[in-house]
């Protein structure tokens, strides 16, 4: 039995930290919590929690079955809570214009690439030009390593610390 307990957050159980200001503006730290963000998001919204020039980290609450997505570049999905299933198909249509994830209007018509059942802490490659969708029986949380795109939602003032807490 371990002498130590590793604290991992979840939608139902997290202890948010914060910024204690001495001489600065708390907004400079763009401080948020992924479980709080996911808890207040609609399923399958891609809410940006971190941005560095064109690159983005997005948080998605997965609940039920998602639409199909695709991107012209690799993306990665890190499951932070719950259990998810990821279906991967080759995207048979034209590559999406511009970076970031795009929603597909119809079922992909390319060949099946594979399927992944992932739990907390599992990191999954979403390869360029693949179509993918998520499903989860219970609310789950996924963090995306991606690029700012048409589905990226920025609501910084709602999710970030703006004063002393």
């Amino acid at each position: 039995m371990s002498d130590y307990t590793t604290e991992l957050g979840s939608l139902d159980d997290y202890r948010k930290g914060g910024v204690h200001i001495i001489n600065d503006d708390p907004r400079n730290y763009v401080f948020s919590n992924v479980f709080e963000v996911a808890g207040k998001s609609a399923p399958f919204e891609r809410v940006c929690v971190a941005k560095n020039l064109e690159y983005a980290i997005e948080i998605m609450r997965v609940e039920g079955a998602s639409p199909w997505f695709t991107a012209g570049h690799d993306e990665f999905a890190l499951c932070l809570d719950g259990r998810i299933e990821v279906e991967l198909m080759k995207h048979g249509g034209d590559a999406p214009e511009g970076d970031g994830a795009h929603a597909l209007d119809a079922e992909p018509d390319g060949p099946r690439m594979g399927r992944i059942r992932a739990g907390r802490g599992h990191l999954t490659l979403l390869p360029a030009q693949a179509a993918y969708r998520f499903s989860a029986e219970a609310p789950s949380v996924v963090l995306f390593q991606t690029i700012d795109g048409p589905l990226t939602i920025e609501r910084w003032a709602e999710i970030c610390q703006t004063g002393e807490e």
Partner: peptide
């Protein structure tokens, strides 16, 4: 300038 306490799930720049 600040002290930033980060716990599981927290994001900060």
């Amino acid at each position: 300038r600040a002290v930033v306490t980060m716990r599981a799930g927290d994001v900060a720049c």
